[in-house]
Simulated scan of single mutants.
Amino acid sequence: MARPRKFTDERLLTAAGAVISRLGPGFTLADVAREAGVAVGTVAQRFGSKHGLLAAMTRTAVGSVREGMRAAAEAGGDPVLVVVDVLVGAFAPLDDPARAANNLAQLAVDLADEELRGLLADLHAALEEGLVPLLDRAVREGRLPAAPPPAVAARILAAVTDGTALHWSARPSGSLRDRLRTDLGAVLAGWCRDSEATIEEGM
Rank of each mutant, 00 (worst) to 15 (best):
M1G: 11
A2T: 11
P4G: 11
R5F: 09
F7A: 15
T8E: 14
R11G: 11
R11Y: 09
R11A: 11
L12N: 11
L13Y: 02
A18K: 04
I20R: 03
S21E: 10
R22T: 10
L23R: 14
L23S: 13
G24E: 06
G26K: 04
F27T: 12
F27V: 12
F27Q: 08
L29H: 02
D31W: 01
V32E: 08
R34L: 15
A36W: 03
V38Q: 05
A39K: 09
A39M: 10
V40F: 00
V40D: 01
V43I: 10
V43T: 06
R46F: 05
R46Y: 05
R46P: 04
F47V: 08
F47C: 06
S49R: 03
H51C: 09
G52S: 02
L54C: 07
M57N: 11
M57P: 15
T60G: 12
A61V: 00
V62L: 08
S64L: 12
V65W: 00
E67C: 13
A71W: 08
A72E: 04
A75R: 10
G76D: 04
G77T: 14
V84L: 12
D85A: 05
V86I: 11
A90G: 13
A90M: 13
A92V: 12
P93S: 01
P93G: 02
L94P: 10
D95A: 12
D96F: 02
D96A: 06
A98M: 01
R99H: 10
A100F: 01
N103R: 03
L104P: 03
A105V: 07
A105P: 06
A105G: 10
Q106M: 15
L107Y: 11
V109S: 14
A112P: 08
D113W: 07
E114P: 07
R117D: 14
R117G: 15
L119Q: 05
L120P: 03
L120C: 09
H124I: 08
H124D: 07
A125M: 11
A126K: 01
P133D: 09
L134T: 01
R140K: 11
E141A: 12
G142P: 14
G142S: 13
A146G: 11
A147R: 06
A147W: 03
P148H: 05
P148I: 04
P148L: 05
P150R: 02
A153T: 03
R155Q: 02
R155A: 03
L157Y: 00
A159V: 09
T161E: 04
D162T: 15
G163H: 00
A165D: 02
A165V: 07
L166K: 12
H167D: 15
H167I: 13
A170D: 05
A170C: 06
A170L: 06
R171Y: 10
R171Q: 14
P172G: 05
S173H: 07
S173I: 09
G174K: 04
G174M: 06
S175M: 11
S175D: 13
S175A: 14
R177W: 02
R179E: 15
D183Y: 00
L184A: 00
G185R: 06
V187F: 04
V187A: 07
W191L: 12
C192K: 02
C192R: 02
R193G: 13
R193V: 12
R193L: 13
A197D: 14
T198M: 11
T198Q: 10
I199H: 08
I199V: 14
E200G: 07
M203T: 09
